[in-house]
Structures are given as C-alpha cells and as structure tokens.
Design a protein around this nucleic acid. Structure first.
Lengths: 188, 188
DNA sequence: CGACTATACGGAGGCAGCCTCCGATTTGTC
DNA sequence: GACAAATCGGAGGCTGCCTCCGTATAGTCG
C-alpha cells in the first residue's frame, strides 16, 4: 500500500484536473454512466489521455468521490462517541446515503463494488463497512437496534433507499425513507 | 382501447413466438438490458423482424411479463376480501416484488415507467397502482398501517427492495427485507 | 395449379460508445 | 539547444441501437 507518486509532468497534471472537473459536471448531468468520450471531448483532451489517467470508469468515479468519502469516514469516528447509539447510526447512514445518492446510478455501483475486491472503490467501501459495523454493534449492545439485522443487510438497504430517492419526486426523499425503515410501516 | 387483431401470417406468428422465447432466456441470463440483436440472432431472425413485432425494448419486456402481471392482478382482487388487511397488503407486495425482481434491471424500469404514460408498461403498472391503493386504504382504515405513508412511497420502496434483493447474496432476500421494513429496525 | 398482392423478412448502414495501441508531440534536464 | 522520457491524441476494431427499403413469401382467387 505504498503511495509512491512521482511528480506528474505539467501538461499531465493540467489534463488530470480538467478531466476531473468535466467528470464531475458530466456525472452530475448524466449520472455515473455518462459518456467517457464526451468527458474527454469537453476537457479538450483525447480519449487516450482519459484512459491513461483513469484506466476504468470506476477509477474516475472513485477519484471524484474520494473527498466526500473521507469526510464521511471522519464523521464516523466522531459518531462513535455519541451518547445515542441509534441516532448515531442513523446519522451516519443519512450521510452515507447522501454520498451514494450524489449521482444517478451510483448506488448500483456501490453495491456491486461491495463484493468486488478488484475495484478501486472497494477499499473505500470496505473501510466504511468496518466503521458502520462498530456503530451497529454499539446500537445493538445498547438494545436500541434489532439484534438479528446484519451489516450487509443494512448497507444494501441503505443503498436501496438512495436508489429509491433518485426515483421519488420529492427532494427530501432519503431522510423520509430512512425514518420509515427505522420506525417500520406498522401503525404505532 | 379496441384490440383489433388481424390474424398474423403463419411465418410472422412463428417468429413472434420464437422471439418471445429467446427474449425470456436472454432477460433471465443478462437482465432486461440484454442485447436485442443477440435475441434476434438466437431466434434465427433478422433484427428488423424483432423491431417490427416489438417496436421498443419495453414492448418486448411488457409482453414477456404480461402473464405474471395478470396473475398478480387477480391475486389483488382476492386479497381485498382477506380478514387481515395488513397481511393482505404484505402478501400483495411480496408477489409484486417477485415480479419486479424477475429480471435484473427490471425494478428500475418499473419505477421509471410509473411516471411515463407513453410506455407500454404504463397501463399494467397503473392498474397495479390502483389495486394496491385499495389494499393500502383498507389497512390504514383498520389502523394496521401508518396513516402517513403514501402509495407512491410504498411502491418505490417495494421496487427498491426488489432491487436490493438482486444485490444481496441470500436467495430469500426480498421476503426478509419486507419483514424488516414492516417491523422497523428499532429493537422491539 | 399458377399468378398476384398484401404482408413480412432481413440486414446493410449510420450513429454512438467502449477501449487499445502506437506514431507524434511535448516537457524537463543536462 | 538537444535528447530521452513522459505524455498526448485519435484512428481503428468492436458491440449495440434503430431505420429503411429491396427482396421473399404466404395466402387467395381465378
């Protein structure tokens, strides 16, 4: 895991930044399946250059998302000290869900990645998985969370809700859906 | 809504059936985004013939799914007489969810179709929407279902769970997820 | 049975996207 | 300023979508 990084040549660095910028724009506009050739075109760069910097679509997505992921990871550490385990978990899930809902098609990608060690996104996702594990254990220990629900179930469900919120007209969809799932659909 | 149907020519009918057969196979193997050209090829038919019988991918999907949908619609009518409104709703959702989970990518298609009147799937989906509405009203009236949850929320959530069950390793995933959502994640 | 017409067939062709490969270009260094 | 290493760019091969129209065939009628 050594992160050797020779300094890039000036033109390479410039192109790298332009590509990221256009990728953000394109993902926002067309989802995570946006045309890579279009991204290169908009960045004023050949398609070969895009593929040199980002060998796969996932590599590009990963780089675009990394900042948000790091923030999210930090949030998890703080939440571990919260006096309300269940709310801490909910808060973490809401944050993660927002990340996952950032671009159309992203929830699908995230879920697929959970079982694919070769993906550049795998490391990030796995780290999150560990973090949420702690939050889940704590909430279970406090008797606030069903003991029989598993971490994979929670994660898949979370991404499913992000996925759903893409397809729901309302804007505050994700939060609402999370509430429903935590509280249950039965009349109280 | 007159269903005029001139009898097809013998070769046309034969090709129609072959295409449906191959479509079922292909959707099962590769999801609803399976290559149409491959389907035509496997059916021993030109791509033009496929498009003549099924002008859009959705038309083909719709035809493949119709039988299951009709069965599902019939189930709804019976469930309206069930003495347990909430269980009736759950049963209906489980059935619908299974339909939606039949092919990879189908939940997404179904959700998108809910707002697209021009889709050949729209009629089927809308009919279902009406049916589930009755079941939902009944369950609310009986005080067994939260009063503030809406039909669109329930439907999107259902398709989200179908979507999730595709991505969950276990096989009885959908049923389990439905239970979780109805009961809620909080410790009881 | 043979001819004629509505019906149906098939695949070429144009477009777009993925990804690879390698000759041409540019950067940084001595 | 020249040279090697690093980087660029896009042509090319592939697959898939969908349309269009010349060709083939089923069914009918004399």
């Amino acid at each position: 895991m050594d992160t050797e990084k020779k300094p890039l040549r000036a033109d390479a660095r410039r192109n790298y930044e332009r590509l990221l910028e256009e990728a953000r724009r394109a993902f926002a506009a067309h989802g995570v399946e946006a045309s890579l050739e279009e991204i290169a075109r908009q960045a004023g760069v050949g398609i070969g250059t895009l593929y040199r910097h980002f060998p796969t679509r996932e590599a590009l997505v990963e780089t675009v998302l990394r900042e948000g992921f790091d923030t999210q990871a930090e949030a998890a550490r703080e939440l571990l000290d919260s006096p309300e385990p269940l709310n801490a978990l909910k808060a973490w899930l809401a944050g993660m869900g927002e990340q996952s809902a950032r671009y159309r098609g992203l929830p699908e990608l995230m879920v697929d990645v959970l079982n694919d060690e070769t993906s550049p996104l795998y490391a990030s996702c796995h780290a999150m998985r560990d973090q949420v594990s702690h939050l889940v254990e704590r909430a279970k220990a406090a008797g606030e969370l069903r003991a029989d629900v598993t971490v994979p179930e929670i994660l898949v469900m979370l991404h499913a809700l992000s996925w759903a919120s893409e397809h729901l007209s309302g804007d505050k969809g994700l939060e609402r859906l999370l509430d429903l799932v935590f509280a249950g659909l039965r009349a109280s």
